[in-house]
Amino acid sequence: MTGSLIRIKEIINNLNPSEKKIAQYILDNPKEISDLSIKKLSMKSGSSQSAVVRLCKILGYKGYKEFRIMIAKDTVNFNRDNENRYTDVEPKDDLAIIMKNISYNNKKSIDNTMEVLSEEAVEKAVEAITKADRIDFYGIGASQIIAMDAFQKFTRINKNVRATPDTHLQVEFASNLKKGDVAVAISYSGETTDTFESIQIAKEAGATTVSITKFGNNSISSICDINLFVLSPEITFRSGAMSSRIAQLNVIDILFTAVASNMFDDVKEALENTRMAAMSKRIK
């Protein structure tokens, strides 16, 4: 699923009962939606027109008309059983199958993320990071790997950046931020307690706050100034958790490259310095 359909799939369990009825009807009958008025959709799904409007807003659309157009685009080449399905890894799978499935899931995660990643939100994040005196990246567990990747990248262009796996240090860092600084919270679920605490303290300190979480309502995105959403549905064998990491790394790459491009005249010397320093560590 891509675009509107995968957005629905991602948030369906967080909807209220009336919205969930509509969402499930759309997922079960995606090709019908382009021919249904809001009244007919509400009747067929056993819900109300106001619930349809709410669902459209939750999904990020101005109204039902825009939503219906996007659903129609999504279903042009829609094949629920094959092309649009994340593939799980099964016990004792052949190595060739594992290689194919994991690679497919990773690529699909990036493609799906590009359907929900707002260019406007990315632009705001890039502008804030470009101007920032200090940038913090917060993440725990697998998300800490993403934070350290961001730390490594932005260090290359001599930005004043911090990332640490120590949650006590994270809140200490956050408490000393100020207006003009940027704090980035990385958590696929958007519900990681330590990361939420750090970003909340950063916000209270006056920093611009950015989230990198899954699409939909969650605790971390709800308090951040700028939300960068990724999409990678988790599946039984945790391949989803692996591909969500790839999607988050891709977002970091986008931010880094855009900031470096904005500041190229200022950072080209730093890029060359770090390139030469890294070359000195090579055997040959």
Rank of each mutant, 00 (worst) to 15 (best):
V184C: 09
A207S: 01
I110Y: 03
D181E: 03
C224D: 05
A23G: 06
I201W: 06
Q24C: 14
G3Q: 09
S239Q: 02
V210D: 07
R68V: 09
S280P: 00
T167E: 07
N101C: 06
I146P: 01
L95H: 08
K203V: 04
L231N: 14
M114C: 15
R282H: 06
K100F: 00
G216L: 05
D166Y: 11
D111S: 12
I71H: 09
M43I: 08
F264G: 00
V53Y: 00
K153F: 01
K44D: 12
M114V: 03
P91S: 15
A278C: 01
P91H: 07
V122T: 12
G139V: 15
M263Y: 04
M99C: 15
F237N: 08
R275E: 00
I58M: 08
T257I: 13
V89G: 04
E234Q: 14
N112A: 08
V251K: 02
D133R: 05
N218S: 06
K107C: 10
L117E: 14
T2N: 15
I252Q: 06
N16L: 11
G180H: 02
I102K: 02
K159D: 02
E120C: 00
F137K: 13
I129S: 02
I254Y: 15
I157Y: 02
F154S: 14
D74E: 12
E269P: 00
K284E: 05
I8R: 02
A277W: 01
D111Y: 02
Y61S: 03
V161R: 06
S18H: 13
T195Y: 07
I246Y: 06
A277H: 07
S175D: 10
Q200Y: 14
S45R: 10
G216V: 08
E19W: 06
L5I: 13
S261M: 11
A207K: 14
V267R: 03
I11W: 05
V171A: 11
E32V: 03
D28R: 11
T209S: 12
Q152N: 08
I235A: 02
S243A: 04
F196I: 13
G216N: 11
T208S: 05
S175T: 10
F137A: 13
G63A: 08
K40S: 15
A277C: 01
K124S: 07
D225C: 04
S18Y: 10
I6N: 08
S221I: 11
N217W: 13
I140C: 13
T274H: 02
I254A: 13
S42G: 09
I129Q: 12
R282K: 09
D111Q: 10
G60H: 00
N273P: 06
I26E: 01
T167P: 04
R85C: 14
G60S: 00
S232I: 04
T155L: 11
M1V: 04
C56K: 04
A270H: 09
A96C: 11
S261N: 08
